[in-house]
């Protein structure tokens, strides 16, 4: 990976988050580079999901959640007064840990975001749905069952469906919260290929607890520990030469336990 000039798609500065009185994130800072994968790793409960939800302000939906710090997506200041939530969330797509297809047809699922932004039913909508499904590698499987319920798809297909749904609106950043945690090994490897393809078009933030996966697919890596970003940098560098004890423990512990 040559040191091409890196453009930053999303940058978070000193993001702190409280759920009620409990602080979950403590001055976390992170830059997400365009067109590559940034992995966020850390123990369960270290605040990875919470951090992602700060990026698209989904924490606004939780009662008692309070955020400090700044998040910029391109020129857009996410937490500025009067910032448009819709625009932010259109530019920052998110895929959740468990696939959550809406109980509608495959077509309507992928078209949901597009129609929100004013696209009417018609050829253009269909084209963009097809394009999204192709990128997500699902088109061949669902081409002739677009009108079936999305709930009839298999787990892996649902996973790719929600990815297609997220990329249909062509976001700049794609947040993936442990998307592969429920896949078997073969499916996971195929899924990683998909991720690498997606990385040629979007900036991707990948939350994972699987260190091998992070090592395989990510260019950059952030290690989150008890709400703080303890380490952030080139993935290979962190693996070979972690600066902090905690990081090293985590890496080696994980590898030894064979997770």
């Amino acid at each position: 990976m040559n040191a091409a000039p890196v453009s930053v798609a999303l940058s978070a500065r000193d993001v702190s988050l409280w759920y009620g009185a409990r602080q979950v994130l403590d001055a976390a800072s992170l830059d997400v580079a365009s067109r590559c994968i940034t992995a966020v790793v850390g123990r369960s409960g270290s605040g990875k999901s919470s951090l992602l939800r700060c990026f698209n302000r989904l924490n606004d939906e939780i009662d008692g959640a309070r955020v400090q710090g700044s998040v910029r997506v391109g020129e857009l200041d996410a937490y500025a007064r009067g910032a448009s939530l819709s625009e932010l969330r259109r530019r920052v797509g998110m895929v959740f840990q468990r696939p959550n297809p809406f109980p509608m047809s495959v077509h309507d699922n992928v078209g949901y975001g597009l129609r929100l932004f004013g696209l009417k039913r018609g050829a253009e909508l269909d084209d963009r749905i097809e394009a999204a499904l192709r990128v997500a590698g699902l088109w061949d499987e669902v081409a002739n069952r677009l009108d079936d319920s999305a709930l009839d798809l298999s787990f892996g297909q649902q996973q790719r469906l929600v990815i297609a749904r997220a990329i249909a609106v062509e976001p700049e950043v794609l947040l993936l919260d442990e998307p592969a945690s429920a896949l078997d090994l073969a499916a996971m490897l195929r899924f990683e290929e998909l991720l690498l393809q997606l990385a040629s078009r979007f900036a991707i933030v990948l939350v994972t607890h699987n260190m091998q996966q992070a090592a395989r697919v990510s260019r950059w890596m952030a290690f989150l520990h008890e709400g703080r970003v303890l380490e952030f940098g080139d993935t290979d560098a962190i693996f070979t030469n972690p600066h902090r004890r905690e990081t090293e423990d985590f890496i080696t512990g994980r590898i030894v336990s064979g997770d």
């Binding site: 698209n56 989904l58 939906e61 939530l85 819709s86 625009e87 932010l88 969330r89 259109r90 797509g93 998110m94 959740f96 468990r98 959550n100 809406f102 109980p103 949901y112 975001g113 929100l116 932004f117 929600v162 749904r165 997220a166 609106v169």
Partner: peptide, 11 residues
């Protein structure tokens, strides 16, 4: 999760 999915798409 469905509600969040929709919100995350910008609705």
């Amino acid at each position: 999760s469905l509600r969040e999915g929709s919100l995350a798409l910008g609705a």
